[in-house]
Design a protein around this nucleic acid. Structure first.
Length: 875
RNA sequence: GGGAGCAUAGCUCAGCUGGUUCAGAGCAUCUGCCUUACAAGCAGAGGGUCAGGGGUUCGAAUCCCUUUGUUCCCACCA
C-alpha cells in the first residue's frame, strides 16, 4: 500500500463522522454506568457558526470524548434557542424586504412566517457543528420552543406566580424603540458616546431672571414638569416657591429643592422629566409631579404636547437645538462625553419608559445560587469570575420577564372582563380560576383575554439543563434523575448573568440541586490585533472555509493551543497551520511504522529494549501530567504536553532509537511495543483530534466493523521508573554534545566517530542507544588522556571524540575556558549562599543539601576543566 | 464613581502553598542540512535587570505597599 506523505483530512473526516453516527456512538441512554452530561449553550436557531462557537464546541467535544473514553456514559445534549427578540427582528426585516409589515398581520400570521423562517434556517448551525466533529447525541436535539419545553416555561411561570414571586406593575423600564419592547437591565449595554451638553435658558415666571440648565437631551423639555436645585445652593435660595417657563414649550413648572442635585455639576440646576429618566421619575414621585410621556413606542413624538408630533427623537434633538437658538433660549453647546444605554440586540439607544410589565422577584430565589458558587459547589473556571458573580448576585434586581413581542412563549395570564386577571397553564384552567375569583359561573373562555406579551428568551433558557430532560413537567422521570445534575458547562463570560446565574437559580428552585458542577468560561475570539471578530470588520474567518482548507482536527488544535483558560483567543492563520503540521507529523510517524517489514526471527537489539522501557515510563508520566491538567480545565496545557510528547519524544527520540536500518526488517517484540505506544498516543490524542486518530487507528491494526477508537478506554498509567528517565536524559545530552562536535567539524552523519570515556562509564543500555543514534563506531573506557580529541563533560564524566589533525586546539581551549569561567561564576554564587550563616541555619535542610551538591558538582567540573586546559596548552 | 483582574523572551502564554538546573514552552527569528517517515521536515543557536519604585525575608517573578499602563464588570450625575 502506497501511503501519501501528506495527510488529507478530506479523505477521512466525513467518512468517520458517518461511521460514528451509523454506529450510534454519540447516543446515550440511562444505564448502570456513571453519567457524564453536558448541555450545549443553545445557539440562536437562525444563527450561523462563528469562531466563538468553534472554540466553545471544540472544548465541549474534548470534554465529552474524554469522559466517554474514561468509560462514563457520556451525553452531550444539542439544541437551539428561539432567541425571541433576535429572531423576531430578523423575520420583521425579511417581511419588510417583501413589502410586508408585522403591524398589518395577525399574531397567527406573523408566527406562521416565523416558524417558516425557523424551519428554513434552523438547524443549519447544528449541521455545521458536525463538520467540527462534535459528538452530540443528535437524537436528543432540542429547541426552546418545542412543545414540551414551552410547556415547562409556562408551568414555571404559573408556579412562580402562585408562590407570589411574579408581579405585574408599572415601572420605569428599558424601552427598545426599534424592537418596541421592554428589555431587562442585562440587555442594555452602556457605551461611551461623544455628545453635546446643551445649556438652556429657563426664565423665572413674572421676572426677567434666567436659570441656565445643562442637559444632554434637550428634546425632553417637552416632558419637563419641574426644575430642581439643591437647597444648599446659594445661587438659588431666593427662588423658593417660584416657577419657571419651559423654553419653547411655554409651560409653567415649579422649582423644587432637593439635595439629589449636585451643586458642582453643570449649572447646579436640573430639569425634571419624570417620564423619561429614572432619577427624574423618583423625584417626580417624591414631589408628586406630573408625568408627561412624550414618546410613541417607536421613539417618535406623540400628540400629548401638541408640538413636533411624529418627529423622531434624534431628529427632534437637532431641530429643537435650532429652534432654541433662534428663540434666544440657548446659552451654549459644549462637547461632552457620556454613556448611553444601547439595546444588546438591536443596537439602538434605549429610552427609559414607564410601562406595565411582569417582574420576577429575585432576592430570595438567588440566595442558594449565590452560596453554591461561593462554596464551589458550582466551580467557576477561571475562579476570578466568582467575584463578579458575587457582586451581581448580592445586588440583584427584579427581572423584567415580559417582552412586547410575538415570537416566544405567550404569558399565561388571562384578563377578566371586569378587571383583574388569573394565571394558569391553560385557558380551561384559567376559566375555572376566573369563575372562582369572580363567582360568575356564566363566564366562557371567550370572555378571557390572554396577555399579549411573551416571556424573555432567558426565561426559557434558564430551565435548559432541566427542560431538555423534561424535568419540570415530569420531575421524577428516569432521564432527569440519571443525567441531572450535569457535569460541565462551557460558555462565554458575557452570558454569566443572563444565563449561567439564572440556570443555577432555576436549578435550586426546581430540582433543589445545582444544574452543573463546573462552569468553564472561555475567552473571546479576537484577531491578531486584539480586535473582536465582527462581520463589519471582516476579520472573522468562516469556520467552514477553515475546515475545508486545513481539516477539522487542525482547527480544533489551533483553537485549543491559543485558548489558555480565561484568556482571550488571538486568532491568526498560522495557528491552523501549526495544527495541520502536527497532523502531518502524526501521519508520517504512522507511515514509518506501517511500512516496516516485521521479522519473527531476528533478535531484539539492546537499544530497543531500553528505549521501550524508557518510553513506557515517559508515557505514564505524561499521562499523569496531562490528566491533571485536564482535570483542572487546563486544556491548552494538556494538549501542548501531548504535542511535545508525540513530536519530540516519540517521533524525535523514540522512533529514532528503535528504527531499523534502511530496508532492514524490525524484530517483532519492538514492533509490537511500538504499535502499542502509537495506539496509546492516538487514544490520548483522540479527544483533541478525533478524525486523524480514528483513521490511523483503523489502519494500524486489524479492526472489525463497529470498532472505534472513540469507544476505547484511555491508556492506564504503568510504573514510572525515574532512574531510567534520568539515564536516558543523560544519554540524550551526550548525543547532543556529539552532534555539536560533528556540526562544528563538519563531520557528516554517515561518517562514524569514536567515543572515549574517562572517569566513569555508561551502562550497556545507554551505550547501545548512543551507538545507534550518534553513529558511534566504538565506545572505549580509558584512563589516560586522549590526545587530539574534542571533549565535553556530562555529570562529572569526561567524554572525548578523537579528531586527529582535525582538532583546532585554539578553538577547543576557548570552548573550555568559556565553560570554566561560567562554572566558576556559578560556584561563586553557590558559595555565597552557603557562607551565609543565616541561610544555612534558616533554610530547610533539603535546600541546603541541594546547594552543597551544586557546590561539589561545580568543583569537580572545574577540576576537570583546569586539568584539561593545562594538558591541552602543553601540546 | 465603585469593584475585580492583568503586566514574565519579537508574539501568545506556563511558572501551583516564596527555595532543586543563576527564569520555561509554543510560535516567530537566525545558522546549517532535500540524511532512505515527515522541507508542513531535521540538527543547532540567539533572545528576558520577570512594568517602575519601596518593603517583609537567610532567600521574592512568586507575599505586602505604591506608581504607571491595560482589560473587564457594576453604577440613576443631568
Amino acid at each position: 500500500m502506497e501511503i501519501p506523505s501528506k495527510y488529507n483530512p478530506a479523505n477521512s473526516e466525513d467518512k468517520w463522522y458517518s461511521y460514528w453516527l451509523k454506529n450510534g456512538f454519540f447516543h446515550s441512554e440511562p444505564d448502570n454506568r456513571e453519567s457524564y452530561t453536558i448541555v450545549i449553550p443553545p445557539p440562536n436557531v437562525t444563527g450561523v457558526l462563528h469562531m466563538g462557537h468553534m472554540l466553545n464546541n471544540t472544548i465541549q467535544d474534548v470534554l465529552v470524548r474524554r469522559a466517554r473514553m474514561k468509560g462514563l456514559n457520556a451525553c452531550w445534549v444539542p439544541g437551539t434557542d428561539h432567541a425571541s427578540i433576535a429572531t423576531e427582528a430578523k423575520v420583521v426585516q425579511k417581511l419588510k424586504s417583501e413589502g410586508k409589515s408585522k403591524t398589518d398581520m395577525t399574531r397567527e400570521e406573523f408566527l406562521g412566517h416565523a416558524w417558516d423562517w425557523t424551519e428554513k434556517h434552523g438547524g443549519i448551525i447544528l449541521e455545521q457543528l458536525k463538520k467540527l466533529g462534535a459528538s452530540c447525541d443528535w437524537e436528543r436535539t432540542k429547541f426552546t420552543m418545542d412543545k414540551d419545553l414551552s410547556q415547562s416555561v409556562i408551568e414555571t411561570f404559573v408556579d412562580l406566580h402562585n408562590k407570589g414571586l411574579v408581579y405585574r406593575g408599572v415601572r420605569m423600564v428599558n424601552w427598545d424603540p426599534s424592537a418596541q419592547t421592554a428589555l431587562s437591565d442585562e440587555e442594555v449595554i452602556h457605551k461611551d458616546e461623544h455628545s453635546k451638553l446643551y445649556y438652556l435658558k429657563y426664565i423665572v415666571e413674572d421676572t426677567k431672571e434666567v436659570i441656565f440648565v445643562a442637559t444632554t437631551r434637550p428634546e425632553t423639555i417637552l416632558g419637563d414638569s419641574a426644575l430642581c436645585v439643591n437647597p444648599n445652593d446659594p445661587r438659588y435660595t431666593h427662588l423658593k416657591g417660584k416657577r419657571v417657563i419651559v423654553p419653547i414649550v411655554g409651560r409653567s413648572i415649579p422649582i423644587i429643592h432637593d439635595d439629589y442635585v449636585d451643586i458642582e455639576f453643570g449649572t447646579g440646576a436640573l430639569k425634571v422629566t419624570p417620564a423619561h429618566d429614572i432619577n427624574d421619575y423618583m423625584l417626580g414621585q417624591k414631589y408628586n409631579l406630573e408625568v408627561i410621556d412624550i414618546f410613541n413606542d417607536n421613539g417618535t413624538i406623540n400628540d400629548k404636547v401638541g408640538m413636533y408630533v411624529g418627529v423622531d427623537r434624534f431628529d427632534l434633538r437637532k431641530q429643537i437645538a435650532i429652534d432654541l437658538q433662534e428663540a434666544g433660549l440657548m446659552e451654549k453647546i459644549e462637547d461632552y462625553d457620556n454613556k448611553v444605554g444601547i439595546s444588546e440586540r438591536t443596537g439602538v439607544a434605549i429610552e427609559p419608559k414607564l410601562s406595565m410589565q411582569w417582574f420576577l422577584k429575585m432576592e430570595e430565589l438567588s440566595k442558594p445560587a449565590l452560596e453554591a458558587v461561593m462554596n464551589d459547589d458550582v466551580a467557576l473556571y477561571p475562579s476570578k469570575f466568582k467575584n463578579t458573580y458575587k457582586h451581581w448576585m448580592e445586588n440583584i434586581k427584579d427581572w423584567c420577564v415580559s417582552r412586547q413581542l410575538w415570537w416566544g412563549q405567550q404569558i399565561p395570564a388571562y384578563y377578566l372582563p371586569n378587571g383583574g386577571f388569573v394565571v394558569a397553564t391553560t385557558p380551561e384552567e384559567a376559566l375555572v380560576l376566573a369563575k372562582e375569583k369572580t363567582g360568575n359561573d356564566s363566564l366562557t373562555i371567550d370572555d378571557l383575554r390572554q396577555d399579549e406579551d411573551v416571556l424573555d428568551t432567558w426565561f426559557s433558557s434558564w430551565l435548559w439543563p432541566i427542560s431538555v430532560f423534561d424535568g419540570i413537567s415530569n420531575p421524577n422521570n428516569k432521564e432527569i434523575e440519571y443525567y441531572y445534575p450535569t457535569n460541565d458547562l462551557v460558555t462565554g463570560p458575557d452570558i454569566l448573568f443572563f444565563w449561567v446565574a439564572r440556570m443555577i437559580v432555576a436549578g435550586y428552585e426546581y430540582r433543589g440541586e445545582k444544574p452543573f458542577s463546573n462552569v468553564y468560561l472561555t475567552g473571546i475570539v479576537r484577531d491578531a490585533q486584539h480586535r473582536k471578530m465582527s462581520k463589519s470588520l471582516g476579520n472573522s474567518p468562516d469556520p467552514l472555509d477553515l475546515i475545508a482548507k486545513y481539516g477539522a482536527d487542525s482547527i480544533r488544535v489551533a483553537m485549543l493551543l491559543c485558548a489558555s483558560a480565561g484568556n482571550d483567543i488571538l486568532w491568526d492563520e498560522t495557528l491552523p497551520e501549526q495544527g495541520r503540521n502536527f497532523s502531518n507529523k502524526i501521519w508520517n510517524a504512522f507511515r514509518l511504522v506501517k511500512n516496516w517489514e516485521v521479522s519473527e526471527t531476528i533478535e531484539q537489539p539492546l537499544s530497543s529494549k531500553i528505549s521501550i522501557d524508557w518510553f513506557d515510563s515517559l508515557l505514564s508520566k505524561s499521562i499523569k501530567e496531562m490528566s491533571a491538567d485536564l482535570d483542572n480545565y487546563r486544556i491548552s496545557e494538556s494538549l501542548m504536553q501531548l504535542y511535545r510528547l508525540f513530536w519530540d519524544e516519540f517521533s524525535g527520540w523514540y522512533l529514532e532509537m528503535i528504527k531499523p536500518s534502511y530496508q532492514k526488517p524490525i524484530d517483532k517484540a519492538t514492533y509490537d511495543a511500538t504499535v502499542e505506544f502509537f495506539e496509546k498516543l492516538l487514544k490520548l490524542l483522540h479527544p483533541f483530534m478525533p478524525f486523524i486518530t480514528e483513521e490511523i487507528w483503523h489502519f494500524l491494526g486489524e479492526r472489525k466493523e463497529g470498532e472505534s477508537i472513540m469507544i476505547e478506554l484511555l491508556p492506564e498509567v504503568t510504573e514510572i521508573k525515574e532512574p531510567l528517565l534520568t539515564e536516558i536524559e543523560q544519554s540524550k545530552e551526550i548525543i547532543t554534545a556529539i552532534r555539536n562536535i560533528r556540526k562544528s567539524k563538519n563531520i557528516a552523519n554517515k561518517d562514524s566517530v569514536e567515543l572515549k570515556i574517562k572517569g566513569g562509564k555508561l551502562t550497556a543500555e545507554s551505550e547501545s542507544v548512543i551507538l545507534k543514534i550518534a553513529n558511534v563506531s566504538s565506545v572505549e573506557v580509558v584512563t589516560k588522556d586522549v590526545a587530539g580529541a574534542s571533549s565535553f563533560i556530562v555529570k562529572g564524566i569526561e567524554f572525548y571524540v578523537p579528531l586527529g589533525d582535525n582538532l583546532n586546539v585554539e578553538e577547543e581551549l576557548l570552548k573550555m575556558k568559556t565553560e570554566l569561567e561560567y562554572t566558576q561564576g556559578f560556584l561563586k554564587s553557590v558559595l555565597k549562599k552557603l557562607s551565609n550563616e543565616r541561610f544555612v541555619n534558616s533554610a530547610p535542610a533539603k535546600v541546603v543539601e541541594i546547594e552543597r551538591t551544586k557546590q561539589a558538582d561545580a568543583e569537580e567540573k572545574i577540576n576537570i576543566l583546569n586539568d584539561q586546559i593545562t594538558k591541552l596548552s602543553n601540546i
